[in-house]
């Protein structure tokens, strides 16, 4: 049994309305622990939808989704929240940071919802920023940072609870070539530490650096 297993995953938006969209049609995918997978495909093909379902921030309307033999279609909101908190680190497209807050405050957010003691939060957040190489920006507000620096803050936040799965939706989407490569290298380092990393990308060069490329079109997997 694989680490992450999707069986016939279906996702419809606006069910039973005129605007119904069938975003994913019977997607089946097996991902092993420690793999570095890229998901590619044309715009609107369902890449983000798939990543959101894997990241437990969205739920499928059909099929079965399991992590480590645990069926996530069967568990309640609280357990799902815990999985988002501990097992999964999500890096959103366009970073998804609170611009008005400092890097360290942004990075600390997952610790606020975990069992971490209040006095340990700062140290842990600082250590994580160090891991992604921007500890000297800890007390700068995010809106004063560059795109690459912001992406590192977003990755640090995804990392802070030491999750086994890192998901990133177009992590290099708005970055220049050099910065993109730095970010991919950072993700590869995390992968070398044993984490499973799944990214969505439009960049073929980056996709080719991964262990696996999954191509998706019209909500269906077209091949690898």
């Amino acid at each position: 049994m694989s680490y992450i297993s999707l069986e016939q995953i279906d996702k419809k938006y606006n069910i039973n309305t005129a605007a119904e969209v069938h975003a994913l049609r019977g997607v089946s995918l097996e991902i092993n622990k420690g793999q570095f997978v890229s998901i590619v495909g044309p715009s609107g093909s369902g890449k983000s939808t798939l990543l959101h379902i894997i990241g437990c921030i969205d739920t499928a309307t059909g099929g079965r989704y399991m992590i480590q033999d645990k069926d996530l279609s069967q568990i309640n909101n609280k357990e799902l929240a815990e999985i988002r908190n501990k097992k999964i680190g999500f890096v959103l497209q366009e970073f998804g940071l609170i611009l008005n807050n400092t890097s360290i405050d942004n990075v600390s957010i997952p610790l606020m919802f975990s069992k971490t003691k209040l006095k340990d939060i700062k140290n842990k957040a600082y250590d994580t920023l160090k891991k992604v190489g921007i500890e000297d920006l800890a007390y700068k507000k995010v809106n004063q940072l560059s795109g690459g620096q912001r992406q590192r803050v977003a990755i640090a936040r995804a990392l802070i609870n030491d999750p086994q799965i890192i998901l990133a939706d177009e992590p290099t989407g708005s970055l220049d070539q050099n910065t993109s490569m730095d970010i991919i290298k950072l993700l590869m380092e995390l992968n070398e530490d044993g984490r499973t990393v799944i990214i969505v990308t439009h960049n073929i060069e980056i996709a080719q650096m991964c262990d696996r490329i999954v191509t998706i079109k019209d909500g269906m997997i077209m091949g690898e």
């Binding site: 988002r84 998804g96 919802f113």
Partner: peptide
């Protein structure tokens, strides 16, 4: 709402 969606993503339930 953005902030709360972020909290959700980082491990809070929506009701929290």
């Amino acid at each position: 709402e953005k902030k709360y969606a972020l909290y959700y993503m980082c491990g809070a339930t929506w009701s929290k």
